[in-house]
Nucleic acid binder design. Sequence first.
DNA 1: TTAATTTGTTAGTCATAACTAACTTTTTTA
DNA 2: TAAAAAAGTTAGTTATGACTAACAAATTAA
Lengths: 227, 227
Amino acid sequence: MTNKLNLNNLTKSEEDYLKALFQLLIEDDSSKVGNNQLADYLKVSPASTNNMVKKLKAKKYVVSEKYGKLELTEEGKSVAVRLIRKHRLWETFLCNYLNFSWDEVHEVAEQLEHIKSQKLINELDRFMDFPTKDPHGEVIPNADGEYSIIPKITLSSLKEGEICKLVSVNDASVTFLKYVSEIGLALSSEVKVLEVREFDGSIKIGFNNVEETVTRKFADNIFVKSI
Amino acid sequence: MTNKLNLNNLTKSEEDYLKALFQLLIEDDSSKVGNNQLADYLKVSPASTNNMVKKLKAKKYVVSEKYGKLELTEEGKSVAVRLIRKHRLWETFLCNYLNFSWDEVHEVAEQLEHIKSQKLINELDRFMDFPTKDPHGEVIPNADGEYSIIPKITLSSLKEGEICKLVSVNDASVTFLKYVSEIGLALSSEVKVLEVREFDGSIKIGFNNVEETVTRKFADNIFVKSI
DNA sequence: TTAATTTGTTAGTCATAACTAACTTTTTTA
DNA sequence: TAAAAAAGTTAGTTATGACTAACAAATTAA
């Protein structure tokens, strides 16, 4: 098994690219992820991405043909899942034990996920009694890298009259998360789509006896399940 | 106050050099620390150190004349103390909450001390109820960077017949720490120097009704106070 | 189906931080 | 005090991972 060994030989940047690619390919379930899309997601230039992809192909984490779409090898996925596990466990720790609010955890978890110690993360997991969801509602992979990837249904995809339950939110934007809290939305909130306005895509929703109109962009970052 | 801002603009390497210099200058209380000594301590080449010292001088963390000894500015000391605080708080957390043994914590703490988040470290401190000593017996600086630097008396400096109490140990070597545990020495152990052998500097010590002969090198890494 | 646009690639540059080799200054010692 | 040793410095190289600018391929639209 080359598995264990390779995990420790990756730079922070290599890890960042693998995780980003995984999130685009698997968590966002894109049929095709290209070089520029990855560059966009990571906020680097296409040239940087191209460079890194070459390196990751040489190291057998990524597969792609010239001018073709990007794919991850099993090894590449394995690295990404372990990063996601670390990220979500740290977020959970920060929220549940260190008084961080859900809009404060992402940035710090981005740093903490690169700490290299198998024992650290598994002990942290045990310390918190093996949590299964992070503060934003995302499933935490277990020590073997197993987790159920729940297909993401965005609030924006619902039709007028549909009722749903909020299961998770995109964790990457502080201002977005603050806004979610401010209007009173929380995980498990029941939300009804009252009106979808064709003109600008904005949506009027009802929850906890309040009504709010939110933008399409906002609704794209709220993930729900129908009830 | 430029203080707060500058703290976040340092690279991992810059932080490593400042901490190393602080430990040589202040904690080990050397009257003179030179370029090559710092290089030795950090296990890099003198050229690398020379280069970094130039940069740190330009940034006003270090002061020195050409071919002269190295010194830290107040700003430089402040950065170093904050790193030491982080290192020791993390070591305490790993030992007291995550089942790490004292020989396992150093390497992981070396990574964790570079995580940039004021809130993280202060909340961790609070979570553990403001510990004052780390697992190796070292004093943990408080949130204002204040701590008492206890002059280090090594076990090797004692004369035959002297009795002392073990207050701290050098945390940087896994094999050393394992050895300390194995022979049964622990913080607060009372140790009597039974014999100092001129020939090779080895020392016969007695503690907890056992006698052990240890090398000079070993005794250099054990810090004590006389009782 | 050609032209425009988007996407991907390559070449060359920059900053960080390591290195070796060669050299200079300072300190030690014979 | 002159030679040897140690300490410090400089120049030039390497690797990582960003960047821009220029170019090529693929896709979309007229």
